[in-house]
Amino acid sequence: MTPSFDFLTAEERALGDRFRRDGFIVAPAEDRAALDAIRDLMVGLARHRLGMDEGAERPDPPGRLLDRIGDVVPVEELNAFRLAMIGGMNAQPWLRAAYFSVARRTLSAIVGSELCMQRRVNLSIQLPDDDSSLLPVHADTWSGDSPFEVVLWIPLVDCHGSKSMFLLPPGPNAELERNLHRFAARSVDEMFAAIEPDLTWMDVPYGHFLLFNQNLAHGNRVNREADARWSMNCRFKGVFTPYADKKLGEFFEPITLRPASRIGLDYEMPAGFHE
């Protein structure tokens, strides 16, 4: 089927072409104030968790504590620390609306205007040289996500090289999926070695977002940079597109239902007729 692009604006078409060709879009935050509020929230939660509330002086830039979190949180305490951060941030009623606003126009162009959003935003923290928080190469669709979902990935620090994540572009990914069964008896590391030359490492400075196609193989490796990676991720999909194992209600929630859909959902045909 030939897609009909004729009804899209030039901007929507360009974004869509880019997304389909590369599998991702990196762009400046559409609502920088919202992104800064999220980062400030995380800095505040981290300071609170680490008992730094009393020290009123904050001479460093806001992101410095996040970058250097490995100086005060040892690897063995990292997961408990991360879970506390996730609990704290998701307890803020404004978090998801702010997160959405960081890429609202791009999400509308790539996914649509009536969206479902994941109910809990995730957080990854990857300390330098730590191999305990790795996400081996995978595609989300292989483990229960609908192919209609996209991931909005937002770094709270500058992310590049091994401090970031990798993505396999659509062409090589199609080849990987054709040959995936050949890796059935082999390790994920062997799969990584096979695709490594084709990988794109995401360069996403703070102040930008990454929107990527989670049907493509992706993951991360040991962070060999000097500072820690902090990145948040959250899935979006069209409300009326098919769901897989991540269900409506328990995982996704409609966030931008439009009036015509609400009217349609409320509509009941006149009843009471009999043969």
């Binding site: 098919p242 929630e253 959902l265």
Partner: peptide, 21 residues
């Protein structure tokens, strides 16, 4: 409203043809 948004969308989806991935 939140509960009903989820319920009503789920009911609409139930009427759609199933899709196999």
């Amino acid at each position: 409203g939140r509960l009903e948004d989820i319920w009503s969308v789920q009911q609409a989806l139930t009427h759609m043809a199933p899709v196999r991935f």
